[in-house]
Design a protein around this nucleic acid. Structure first.
Lengths: 174, 174
DNA sequence: CCATTATTTCAGGGAATACAGAAATGCCCA
DNA sequence: TGGGCATTTCTGTATTCCCTGAAATAATGG
């Protein structure tokens, strides 16, 4: 696939952003490429276009599939896989957030809950226990909110965002 | 400062979480320690407690101050700085989100805007231009929403979260 | 069941990052 | 102005992570 300068830049920036958010650069670049590609690409094309090793692309694609950002399919009568990305930005954010929540946020909450419980049984000072509790509760509150809201249909979410923003403009600034 | 096992665990987990979120382990540990410490600590105490090199602590504290997660002050008649962290979890999340937005999200949007503009002037295919535009618009929508909502007083934000969650439970699941 | 092609796994080199200890700088007070 | 104390910068080393190329595995068609 031939890239215009603007397309190259897009992929480059996407890679940078990914790197900052804890996804490695090549993975983010592969995703960017699939994100703007109109048709499914096979692994070989991705290698050529991005100048990455075949194995690297394979690993990257697998990771992206794990995040449910990319789907593979196989054209009839062909033996190689072709890949497409989730094309919609809204879905994309959902998937990314959900992934981080499951892999990082939830385990952290669980671990902190254990720690807070353990603190009850040792010499941990009261103010520290209190602070651990507060930390836990606030994280839990965010998580509860997310779980409730994430279940809504996208249309409702969009509406709520727009409505929320509109209302916000009438309320006193913090 | 003496750490009970539970306190050690707390700091350890905080460090892990930080690492996953792109903050290095020592920095996150320093923050964790300050987060549970009832009184301001000086750099020396932090070293001793966490077993880190003095220079490392210095760098870490500077980074935390850059993120506005830690403030330094100097006790009257003393010549060394003491440090405290933002103690409130809600504030903490606000600061973290705000920091990431400013440092990563906003620049990315700006960069993508440039790219999308450049795409108008080169051979970039139409569907690619369209996808770039869509990407940009969705990110912009999130950012607009955030800016509106973040300006609200905390009480209103909390209320809105709780209300949103409550309403969400009555609406059809997505 | 073999030949061919696609994919995955693995080991090693290399770049980026984190950290410790030493040196340098800055600051305050006598 | 100089000495002592606190902080920061610097430099080398260790560690971690990334990516490649080769080897192994899997899949398909003859």
């Amino acid at each position: 696939m031939l890239l215009t300068p603007a397309m190259q830049d897009f992929i480059l920036h996407w890679g940078e952003m990914g790197a900052k958010w804890g996804v490695n650069r090549s993975v983010a670049q592969i995703h960017a490429l699939l994100h703007i590609a109109p048709d499914p690409l096979d692994a070989e094309e991705i290698c050529d276009t991005l100048g990455l090793a075949r194995s690297n692309v394979s690993t990257g694609l697998k990771e992206l599939q794990g995040w449910k950002l990319v789907k593979s399919s196989r054209a009839l009568g062909d033996r190689r896989d072709v890949f497409i990305s989730v094309q919609d930005m809204f879905d994309l954010s959902r998937v990314v957030i959900e992934g981080r929540r499951e892999r990082e946020f939830v385990p952290t909450i669980a671990a902190l809950r254990e720690v807070a419980k353990a603190a009850e049984g040792d010499a941990t000072p009261d103010h520290v226990k209190a602070r651990m509790q507060e930390t836990l509760q606030t994280m839990q509150m965010f998580d509860d909110w997310y779980r409730d809201v994430s279940g809504l249909p996208r249309g409702v979410q969009l509406l709520a965002m727009k409505l929320g923003a509109k209302i916000a403009r009438f309320l006193p600034k913090g």
